[in-house]
Computed example of a mutant assay.
Amino acid sequence: MKKRNAVTPYGWKIKQKLVEKQMDQGTFCDTYHIPPSRLSNLIHGTRKAKKYRKLVSELLGLEE
């Protein structure tokens, strides 16, 4: 069985902002045309995904 990567501090900020907006990850991705795999990469820190990191930060009002 494959072990899941832990959520990074930046990932927790994303999750917190989504809760504040009362939006789940799927809805957020569909609304802003972000691939769900890239959002997951950002939350778990498995890939840099710089383009999407900047976009997500802007949309959620996060500092990079």
Rank of each mutant, 00 (worst) to 15 (best):
S40H: 14
H44T: 13
H33E: 15
T46Q: 05
K51V: 09
R53C: 01
Q16T: 15
Y52V: 00
K2W: 00
P35E: 11
T46M: 02
P9N: 08
I14P: 10
K15N: 13
S57L: 01
E58V: 03
K51N: 06
P35H: 10
Y10H: 07
L55V: 06
N5G: 00
L60G: 04
F28S: 11
L39W: 07
G61I: 02
D24F: 10
L18V: 12
K51G: 00
V56F: 01
Q22M: 14
L60M: 03
K2L: 03
L60F: 01
N41W: 12
T46G: 01
Y32E: 10
F28C: 12
Q16G: 10
K15I: 15
K51P: 00
P36N: 09
Q22F: 12
H44V: 08
K15S: 10
S57H: 01
Y10R: 08
N41M: 09
G45A: 04
K2H: 00
T27P: 10
T8A: 02
K51C: 00
K48H: 08
S57E: 06
G61A: 02
G11S: 06
S37E: 14
Q25C: 13
K54I: 09
L60Y: 02
S37H: 10
V7H: 03
V7N: 04
M1R: 03
F28R: 11
H44P: 01
Y52L: 00
G61E: 06
R38Y: 13
E64H: 07
M23C: 13
K15W: 05
L39Y: 07
P36V: 11
K17C: 10
I34E: 09
V7R: 07
L59F: 01
L55E: 09
L59R: 02
P36C: 08
L39F: 05
V56R: 02
E58H: 05
G11K: 06
Y10V: 04
I14N: 08
T27S: 14
I14V: 13
P35A: 09
E63F: 00
H44F: 02
V56S: 01
S37K: 12
D24P: 12
E58F: 02
L62M: 06
L55P: 00
I43V: 11
P36I: 10
N5Y: 07
L59T: 05
P35N: 13
T46F: 03
K48I: 08
T46P: 04
G45K: 05
L42I: 08
L42G: 07
M23L: 14
L59K: 06
M23E: 15
G11T: 07
I14D: 11
T31L: 14
L55M: 09
C29P: 12
K2T: 00
T46Y: 03
R53E: 08
Q16P: 04
V56Q: 03
G26S: 15
L59Q: 04
N41A: 12
Q25Y: 11
